[in-house]
Amino acid sequence: MRVNVRQRQLELKVVFYGPGLSGKTTNLAWLHDNLPPEARGRLIQLDTEGERTLFFDYFPYDLGTVGDYDIKVDFFTVPGQSFYQATRRAVLDGVDGIIFVADSAPEREAANLLSHDDMRAALEERGRSLDEVPHVYQWNKQDLPNAVSPSVLERMLNPEKAASVTAIAAKGEGVLEAKALVLEEVLVHVSR
């Protein structure tokens, strides 16, 4: 959370986390395309030639003015492949809210778990725990014919019973819901 006194602006950061190809960029891009144009800034995507996220995707989102203060949210994604750990740490630093995008394909079970562990470890390296950071889960790709059921994913990844939503991000389903859930959690957390 950044407090910009001169601009009277509160800046919050929400990061889409998850294994490679789980739908983080899809979520962010869909969100950008479907939020009011006057409320969001330019979408920045730093990816490889193969259109995989190399560094991050980003856009700022205006949450309006409350009293005398402007509230802005920075949405980031991280690269999901295991060898981009340093970049993920750099993006996650100072995060205010996380949307964990899980891949419901059964062959991605291990990748989901590894990514989840990596997220926990990244927070702990900064002296934080997942319990302290507002976060929600998105069970993406639920349209796959053999998709792992949300109840199984809940048991595997969400023992803390944080808010969750099923999604088919490629069609925009569950994207706005995940965004709304995490922003609610973040704003309530800020209020405390």
């Binding site: 910009n4 800046e11 920045i44 989102y61």
Partner: peptide, 25 residues
């Protein structure tokens, strides 16, 4: 510490965090 952000009306500018993230990477 606070950067001057030139906000054109109707344009949501990137925040300082974008630059901070790029520096860390």
């Amino acid at each position: 510490p606070d950067a001057e952000v030139s906000n054109r009306p109707g344009v949501v500018a990137p925040s300082d965090e974008l630059r901070a993230v790029t520096h860390r990477i």
